[in-house]
């Protein structure tokens, strides 16, 4: 079982969280010229590589906040967690 350190609540079990996917994906900015390829990349295309992966989780059965988690997709080791509004360095 994963143990995720919520930046708001502290260390909690995986059962309290739900997954939200790749956190590095950025929605194209409104009011700007957007190509079909930009939308394609935002909606569908994912790197999904083996190794370190920044992803979104929601602390659904806790504070209900969305957070960012850096996790290894092969070993499940968790390196870092951030609040949703904090930038990935």
């Amino acid at each position: 079982m994963l143990h995720i350190k919520c930046p708001h609540c502290g260390m909690r079990s995986q059962n309290e969280f739900s997954y939200g996917g790749d956190a590095s994906v950025k929605r194209p900015e409104l009011n700007k010229e957007i190509s079909d390829q930009d939308w394609d990349n935002f909606v569908y295309n994912r790197k999904s590589l083996r190794g370190k992966h920044w992803e979104l989780w929601q602390h659904l059965s806790g504070c209900r906040q969305w957070i960012k988690v850096e996790r290894d997709t092969a070993t499940h080791e968790i390196f870092d967690t951030l609040k949703a509004n904090e930038e990935i360095s």
Binding site: M1, N15, Y19, R71, A74, T75
Partner: peptide, 13 residues
Amino acid sequence: DGYNSYAQRGNLP
């Protein structure tokens, strides 16, 4: 299991 994984082994929940 519900999140990206290359582990080839599962999680109990």
